[in-house]
Simulated assay, not measured.
Amino acid sequence: MIRGIRGAITVKENNANEMVANTKILLDEMIEKNEIVPENVVQVLITTTEDLDAVFPARAMRMLDGWTYVPVMCMREIPVVNSLEKCIRIMMTVETDIPQDQIDHIYLEGAIVLRPDLSMNK
């Protein structure tokens, strides 16, 4: 079965090191909680809010062993008035046997406000 796994994290500054570090924290958590192996990943879409342009956050994925051939694309979130700032979002499409209601979507730091219902520990 193909499933989408969502995640988001915020950063304090538009800083390349912080963006890559926080994106890696988010990816690590998504991978661990959902037992993801790179061979089962169809694609990874990463978005940033308009106030983040210091680096492509996909650089963090290239730091992970075995993820060299996983397709990844970065893009910009639409600029919705009063939306969460300095936010990096990930949509990972994976092949998994985990039922949809058992997928762990990961929201960290200030991004917890996006989906508090999914941020609770299962």
Rank of each mutant, 00 (worst) to 15 (best):
Asp101Gln: 14
Arg76Leu: 15
Thr68Gln: 14
Thr93Trp: 10
Thr68Trp: 08
Val20Ala: 02
Arg3Trp: 01
Val80Gly: 01
Ile78Thr: 11
Thr10Ala: 10
Ile88His: 03
Glu39Thr: 12
Gly4Asn: 15
Ser83Leu: 02
Arg3Ser: 06
Thr96Asn: 10
Glu85Tyr: 07
Val70Cys: 03
Arg89Cys: 13
Ile25Glu: 03
Met75Phe: 08
Ala60Trp: 05
Leu45Tyr: 04
Asp51Gly: 15
Ile25Cys: 05
Thr48Ile: 11
Glu85Ala: 10
Ile5Gln: 02
Met73Ile: 06
Ile25Phe: 04
Ile88Pro: 05
Leu108Cys: 01
Val20Met: 01
Val41Asp: 00
Ala54Ser: 15
Tyr69Met: 08
Tyr107Arg: 06
Lys12Glu: 14
Glu85Val: 04
Met92Trp: 02
Gln102Ile: 06
Met73Gly: 02
Leu114Glu: 13
Glu85Pro: 02
Ile36Met: 06
Ala8His: 02
Arg76Phe: 11
Lys33Glu: 01
Tyr107Cys: 03
Ala21Ser: 12
Glu39Pro: 01
Ile78Gly: 05
Val55Phe: 10
Met1His: 07
Val44Thr: 11
Thr47Val: 09
Leu27Pro: 06
Ile112Ala: 05
Glu50Arg: 11
Asn121Pro: 14
Met120Ser: 12
Asp53Gln: 12
Asp117Met: 05
Asn121Glu: 08
Met61Val: 12
Asn15Asp: 15
Leu108Gln: 06
Thr93Val: 15
Thr49Trp: 05
Glu85Arg: 11
Val44His: 00
Leu84Met: 11
Arg6Ser: 04
Met92Cys: 03
Met92Asp: 01
Val113Arg: 11
Ala111Thr: 07
Met19Leu: 14
Lys122Asp: 04
Glu109Gln: 06
Asp97Glu: 13
Glu39Met: 09
Leu45Pro: 00
Ile25Tyr: 03
Asp104Gly: 00
Asp101Lys: 11
Ile2Pro: 03
Ala111Lys: 00
Arg6Asn: 07
Gly7Asp: 02
Met75Lys: 10
Pro116Ile: 08
Val41Ile: 12
Ala21Gln: 04
Ile46Ala: 13
Gly4Ala: 13
Leu52Ala: 14
Ile98Pro: 04
Ile103Pro: 07
Lys86Trp: 09
Glu29Cys: 09
Ile9Asn: 01
Ile106Thr: 04
Val72Pro: 00
Asn34Arg: 06
Met19Pro: 09
Asn34Ile: 09
Thr68Ser: 11
Asp97Gly: 13
Asn17Ala: 14
Glu109Trp: 08
Glu32Phe: 13
Glu85Met: 02
Met120Cys: 06
Met63Arg: 14
Tyr69Ile: 01
Ile103Lys: 01
Met120Asp: 07
Ile5Thr: 00
Glu32Ser: 12
Arg76Met: 15
Arg62Ala: 12
Val44Tyr: 02
Leu26Trp: 05
Ile112Gln: 09
Lys86Gln: 13
Arg3Pro: 00
Thr48Leu: 03
Ile25His: 03
Val81Tyr: 06
Gly66Val: 10
Cys87His: 05
Asn40Lys: 14
Thr10Ile: 08
Ala21Leu: 12
Pro116His: 08
Arg62Glu: 15
Glu29Ile: 00
Met73Trp: 01
Ile103Asp: 02
Tyr107Ala: 04
Gly66Tyr: 12
Glu29Lys: 15
Thr23Ser: 13
Leu84Ile: 15
Pro38Ser: 15
His105Arg: 06
Val94Lys: 01
Arg89Thr: 08
Arg89Gly: 03
Thr93Glu: 09
Val55Leu: 11
Pro79Asn: 11
